[in-house]
Design a protein around this nucleic acid. Structure first.
Lengths: 92, 92
DNA sequence: AGACATTTGTACGTATGTATT
DNA sequence: AAATACATACGTACAAATGTC
């Protein structure tokens, strides 16, 4: 019997790839933003949830989010979470 | 009896400070560079040595070195080490 | 005010992979 | 082949900021 979470995303990650896992996670989240599945000004799942969904360590998620932050795609607030940044031209 | 390494620098780090340990290490190394104790184009002690000298974890040293890299003070080469960057205007 | 839960930040440890010498 | 050194990723713990009650 196979048990998996309702939001299991671990099959999107290849641990044997030359692309770092953190980058794979960042790209996957970025895809969700681009596709509108993650809407501006809404919060991302917290780091622990993302870690569980992707089947990776929290530090790996933090690196992924840092990459998205560097691209200006998300904004992180200590104690609150990381939010999808408003699109260019929108004030929020 | 007190035992300490010949190059113990752990007394320069305050673990109860609001300044992150990694930043304290970076500043201490930066001080050495500024004072000429670390010369351009010479290699820094490796991460494990720095970690032992400062009494911190290797990842903390890596963060410190990353900060110096972001400032352009050191250059890291995969498989070789981190080197004090040539001063502005020098070719190396 | 004070206590509590949630979430990110920092720091530690450890293991394995990859590149250079 | 071996030693050295950086890169990535796993885990764990506690601190700090935030929000709620």
């Amino acid at each position: 019997m196979i048990i998996m979470s309702l939001d299991d995303r671990s099959d999107r990650i290849r641990h044997d790839s030359s692309v770092p896992v953190a980058t794979q996670v960042a790209r996957d989240i970025e895809k969700d933003i681009g596709a509108g599945r993650l809407v501006p000004d809404t919060r991302l799942p917290n780091e622990l949830e993302l870690a569980q969904q992707y089947g990776v360590a929290r530090m790996t998620v933090r690196r992924a989010v840092a990459q998205l932050r560097d691209k200006g795609l998300v904004v992180t607030v200590h104690g609150r979470g990381s939010f999808v940044a408003p699109r260019d031209g929108e004030t929020g």
